[in-house]
Amino acid sequence: MSALGELRTIGHRKVAGSSKEKNENKAAYLFLLPWFLGLAIITVGPMLASLYLSFTKYNLLQPPEIIGFGNFERMLGDERLHNSLGVTFVYVFVSVPVQLGLALALAVVLNRGLRGLSFYRSVFYLPSLLGSSVAIAVLWKQVFGTQGLVNVFIGLFGAEGHGWISDPSTALSTLIILNVWTFGAPMVIFLAGLRQVPQMYLEAAEVDGASKWQRFLRITLPLLTPIIFFNLVLQIIHAFQSFTQAFIISGGNGGPADSTLFYTLYLYNRGFANFDMGYASAMAWFLLLIIGVFTAINFWASKYWVFYDD
């Protein structure tokens, strides 16, 4: 059961009895003490403080000054912000579906009684572990540079090279490719899900003369929809927060021509390079809102396509 499944079902679970033992209550709170402290000091406290800051003008060196909805009004007219939203949306809504599609396809191929499964699984999974490191971003910058690996290969076929990262029309694609490259993690989750598709359903369908493709479409895929949903929600949330790769590959400024200016990168630049902390806080809350809305849409839409077996 995943965290999402838990959230979904928590509504219909019955509370088991009332706390009859005060002792146990006390013990529980003791065990939870670090977590409660963390919630208050590290999570909720700063959250509320940042909500407050989002209504102020605050440059770190002087006290914050309340300006009402000033920051949010400024966001409405800030074209770089609108552009960064556009960049982020393209990144999220191109890379996540492609990544998940690839992950599902390979999981299905690997699941069909193939020898060397664990070897292939390792090979495809490794990039997921490396993908968020600075070292890989450094490598990417070279692979897609004017003198980079990609151009050398293109050159072998006699085609003209291209500055993939220094051209605004292709720079974002290199980041999308990098995200797709880390399809191994969702693939492993799909593999786990595929193993739970009851074999007897498939066998029964085979007896009825259903083709492989039909069996996949009619049985496997519907049974897999909860896992697809789970992967979709997580990967979207994750992609909205991407930062490191764009930061390293663009040298911190989201260039060329703001084509890789992720929302989070712009937020960092406003807050920590331009001392614009009130505005950065407002931007952070707006990001939370966006992620919340898309997660809610996902949950709402799941009623129509996710099939629950329980």
Binding site: G45, L48, A49, Y52, T56, P63, P64, E65, I66
Partner: peptide, 19 residues
């Protein structure tokens, strides 16, 4: 002036005391 307003408003949010 900003300081005073700032202090008052943050004071309202008990849990954010540290910040």
């Amino acid at each position: 002036r900003g300081t005073r307003v700032g202090r008052k408003a943050t004071g309202l949010i008990g849990i954010a005391a540290a910040a």
